[in-house]
Design a protein around this nucleic acid. Structure first.
Lengths: 212, 212
DNA sequence: ATCTTTTTTGATTATAAAATCAACAAAACT
DNA sequence: AGTTTTGTTGATTTTATAATCAAAAAAGAT
């Protein structure tokens, strides 16, 4: 049986390979969606036999959940950031959240991809993600948007729509990098590209919602 | 053999069922992605046997292509709109394009979903979509954005990023309706929701990119 | 060094879905 | 009405992949 939850410094061999599997799995699941991904595909990319995956994870579903919890850790980090900024104005907090979202989205592009993929499909996996990874944070951002509207600093659109539009807009360039490369011959994932993108998101996308 | 391309008024029985199959297929493919969809699932939703699908379409790939060409027709319509507005300023044309994009996205939500799904995954299907459905139009919009920047009316970000951000932002609320319902208990797909969304896209999202 | 436990694997089984096909039914044509 | 063409189907085959398992290899304990 695999040792679960031993988050100690010297992770045994088992935990190290499990982590590698999770990493590969997250990448593939987020790009392709659950059913496009095969256990043997993950195994190959991780340099393991497919049977090994079933030693560490009971089945494909469990592996998916386990991989998604990696994103949960990233989100939790963002939430701690927001906790630390609770004294700032709602708009300032939103700005901080967006900047952080960009940072983690470039570092963990799986985040936005998973949201897009499962958020469109609906179903059980989305419900699970909502409960274990995304829901709390999204509702928190919506509350910030609502507060900013009530304070008269954001244009009065439904806060849920604002939050989704901001995130979908910001993640678009990251998620759709393959499309951009193909259609425009333009690769946004470079140092300059990321810098331009950050400025675009903060100084055009977000600022469009701010009242003059 | 099925009669192909007989786009006459009185479509024979064959063409009518083929059209129904394409319709169901487009909906499912766009929500779930290629591999999540099964031939028998489409057959069931269309009230047909799965063998009938193979009578009308050689294989699953062909059915996918055929369904996607339905989106091609929608895009072509948009392009004719733009042709008719060629005398307007680049920014006015972008505005027209966005308004039209909203209209067709609510009417054919498959469009944005397919872009998101395949645009993230990359690969052969994306290349096919780029060539047969999306590429020309996206490059045209990017050219408009570039012209608007050169005319000094849009903020100077990479036009490819602007175009993708506008579309991803506008499509977000539509694509992610299932997520919004689950997370916020908020359904954007109502008469008021759509109206608020149109205003949000034109008066906040797009206007954020316009120079003051 | 030997023994025990953990980890990995090749081979196999089970299962779900795509594709094929021969037979049947409906429409169109004369 | 009879004939041909088009459209539809149930049953079958093929194929891809998830899941299992017994045996081997590696790691760790004594």
């Amino acid at each position: 049986m695999a040792a679960l939850g031993s988050a100690t410094v010297s992770a045994g061999k088992g935990e190290r390979t499990a982590a590698r599997i999770r990493e590969v799995a997250l990448d593939q699941f987020s790009r392709l969606g659950f059913e496009r991904v095969t256990m043997s595909g993950i195994a190959e990319a991780a340099g393991l036999s497919q049977a090994t995956l079933h030693y560490h994870f009971q089945d494909k579903d469990q592996l998916w959940r386990s991989a998604m919890l990696g994103l949960g850790a990233v989100i939790a980090e963002e939430e701690r950031m927001l906790d630390a900024a609770q004294d700032a104005s709602p708009l300032a907090q939103l700005r901080i959240a967006m900047r952080f979202f960009l940072r983690i989205s470039w570092k963990h592009p799986a985040l936005g991809r998973v949201v897009a993929l499962e958020g469109m499909a609906g179903g059980e996996r989305l419900a699970w993600l909502d409960e274990h990874v995304l829901g709390h944070r999204n509702r928190r951002l919506a509350a910030l948007a609502r507060a900013a509207i009530e304070a008269g600093v954001l244009k009065p659109f439904p806060p849920e729509m604002i939050v989704i539009t901001l995130q979908a807009g910001a993640a678009g360039v990251i998620n759709l990098a393959p499309l951009m490369r193909g259609t425009f011959g333009f690769d946004p994932d470079t140092a300059e590209g990321r810098a331009a993108h950050e400025s675009l998101v903060l100084d055009a996308l977000l600022s469009g919602f701010v009242k003059n």
